[in-house]
């Protein structure tokens, strides 16, 4: 690892000034950044430690549930408000990483974590995300873990987070601070698709930092489920994961929220499937039918064609769990 300068910021403004300078990165939990630095994937000249800033709170505001960017994944997963109001988020968090890593990782850091694509991590391999212009190792390579939605000729990596899948499903917003002040972004608009610039993971501009996320109130607490299918029972990234939330009243679906992980460069929200479920009864047949709608535009590569089958199966299964059929 390259030697770097380590500084602490005394305020958000300090952070923004610091990260406006090239070569500077924020460090919080460090679970992904330190790993990337060890592998030489990134080599910042300066790290700004923000862990002492007052961005850890989890509380109710007029807009819903507010979760500070520095709230730890383990703390959010166990928080009474989260468990009561948005159990989907708690389930997704617990499906991610390991207890140790969740004790270190923050909400903001989880959002900022980079793909686990093996070609991205190995500096001896081509990767447009790590080194633009070098090509995509995964296209034509070992792409079993890779995306089937929203890919480009430059990159087929997936975003690895579980938490983000739940937040995308729950209509969360992201509060961002930057040199020009604060702004708010829909969570589903926070991460990017790779397009021509896979080196960019999200829509944060230079000098911007995440302050918090907010989840609006909803009626999904009773009927939500996070289903993660992976190669082992725990401590593994998703082959496919589904965050499913239903508002069921008198045996009829009044509202639905669905997002998938492990299939795209960003959490993949399933608006069409959600729409199709409204007014339907929560039955196995309806779920299976709706799940098929999710697959429009899916494109498989040499080793990940199984996801075309696994994804709808997982959606249907997650909906069964959410609705109490399982």
């Amino acid at each position: 690892m390259k030697q770097f300068q380590y500084v602490k910021a005394s305020s958000n403004a300090g952070v923004i000034t610091a990260i406006s300078k090239p070569g500077t990165k924020i460090i919080a939990g460090g679970t992904n950044l330190v790993d990337l630095m060890k592998r030489g994937v990134t080599a910042p000249d300066r790290l700004v430690d923000i862990t002492h800033l007052p961005l850890k709170s989890i509380n109710i505001t007029g807009k819903g549930l507010h979760i500070g960017a520095l709230a730890l994944n383990s703390v959010v997963a166990e928080n009474a408000l989260v468990v009561e109001k948005h159990p989907l988020l708690a389930m997704a968090l617990k499906a991610g990483a390991s207890p140790q890593l969740r004790n270190m990782a923050t909400v903001g850091g989880n959002m900022m974590q980079r793909t686990r694509c093996t070609y991205f991590y190995d500096t001896a391999m081509p990767c447009n995300k790590r080194a633009p212009g070098t090509g995509c190792g995964a296209i034509g390579g070992i792409n079993r873990m890779h995306a089937i939605f929203g890919t480009s000729s430059k990159c087929i990596a997936v975003h690895p987070s579980d938490m983000c899948v739940a937040l995308a499903a729950l209509d969360a917003t992201v509060i961002i601070a930057g040199p020009k002040g604060q702004r708010t972004l829909q969570f589903t608009e926070f991460h990017r698709l790779p397009g021509e610039h896979p080196e960019l993971d999200n829509h944060l501009a230079t000098g911007e930092m995440i302050l918090s996320v907010e989840i609006p109130d909803n009626n999904f607490a009773k009927n939500s489920y996070y289903l993660k299918v992976r190669d082992r029972q725990s401590y593994a990234f998703a082959l496919v994961s589904v965050a499913a939330a239903l508002d069921i009243q008198n045996g009829v679906i009044r509202g639905a929220r669905l997002a998938m992980g492990g299939v795209a460069h960003k959490p993949w929200r399933l608006f069409e499937v959600e729409k199709s479920l409204i007014g339907k009864k929560p039955t196995e047949e309806n779920f299976a039918q709706a799940a098929q709608l999710a697959m429009q535009g899916a494109k498989a590569y040499e080793y990940n064609a199984f996801k075309l089958k696994l994804a709808p199966a997982t959606i249907a299964e997650a909906l069964k769990h959410a609705s109490g059929l399982v």
């Binding site: 686990r116 093996t118 070609y119 190995d122 001896a124 391999m125 190792g137 390579g141 070992i142 190669d231 082992r232 029972q233 725990s234 401590y235 593994a236 990234f237």
Partner: peptide, 18 residues
């Protein structure tokens, strides 16, 4: 490339407790 792509404990899976 003749190179291992899952040469780590995150990608080369061995059983965990669960």
């Amino acid at each position: 490339y003749g190179r291992y792509v899952n040469n780590n404990f995150a990608d080369y899976h061995v059983p965990v407790n669960a």
